[in-house]
């Protein structure tokens, strides 16, 4: 699915990540952890083509990221659901329209998707927020809406950056169950978080690998978590 081979990334000459190799196989569940500023977000961005590696190579669905043009990146994004830490929406459109946005931009908006949308909104607990505008949502609701938006195209890979950062424990468990359920359906999931409790909770339900970014590189954390 996503392959990183000796990847390095540096911001204006300062190496942030070096020598990272990883293969995300279909149906795997990964946690990405590490101290703040270690490069978790940068790593995720490398995984969905928002950043191009300054060294090594990244292949997404078999294609070399450095050789993708902007349209190829756009088509690839439709197969990768991304939930950002600071979820951004089109603030002038309703929540439902925002969640359905990936359908609109990929020309897949059909009437039967409306049921899908309805179900998804219910799943993330936003049934009552169809017509709300994104600025009216709480932090947790924004995260759930972002997750719903990332899922509506039924992507092969889901990359989530601190998806439970703004939600309470109960909601984070719900989001986690949702992601685990998606993983059982065969999706590849990668969650960047520094919430160790979340990782422990997940381990009871799913075989998750924990990756840790320390000293600018990626290490597989022990099973002691």
């Amino acid at each position: 699915m996503i392959e990183l081979d000796n990847v390095a990334y540096s911001y204006s000459g300062d190496a942030l990540l070096t020598d990272i190799s990883l293969q995300l196989a279909p149906g795997t569940f990964h946690f990405l952890t590490g101290p703040s500023g270690a490069g978790k977000t940068t790593f995720l961005k490398l995984c969905y083509g928002a950043l191009k590696p300054t060294g090594g190579s990244v292949h997404i669905f078999g294609d070399d990221v450095t050789e993708m043009d902007r349209d190829a990146v756009a088509y690839m994004r439709r197969r990768v659901g991304v939930v950002h830490q600071d979820c951004q929406f089109l603030d002038h459109l309703s929540v439902a329209e925002n969640v359905a946005l990936p359908l609109s931009v990929s020309g897949q908006a059909t009437p039967d998707q409306a049921e899908n949308l309805n179900e998804l909104m219910g799943w993330v607990g936003l049934q009552g927020k169809f017509d709300s505008l994104p600025p009216e949502l709480s932090g947790g609701e924004r995260q759930r809406a972002a997750l719903a938006r990332a899922l509506i195209l039924s992507p092969d890979v889901i990359l989530a950056d601190e998806p439970t950062g703004n939600v309470d424990w109960e909601m984070s468990q719900r989001l986690l169950r949702l992601l685990i359920e998606l993983n059982r359906m065969g999706k590849t999931v990668m969650i960047a978080t520094h919430d160790l409790g979340l990782i422990r909770a997940a381990k009871a339900h799913v075989q998750a690998r924990v990756l840790r970014i320390t000293n600018r590189t990626l290490q597989t954390a022990g099973a002691d978590l």
């Binding site: 349209d71 756009a74 439709r78 991304v82 951004q88 990936p102 990929s106």
Partner: peptide, 16 residues
Amino acid sequence: AQVIAVLRLVGATDGY
């Protein structure tokens, strides 16, 4: 710029 960033994130092509 924010609208464009969101659209790119969800897979909109430049043409769209």
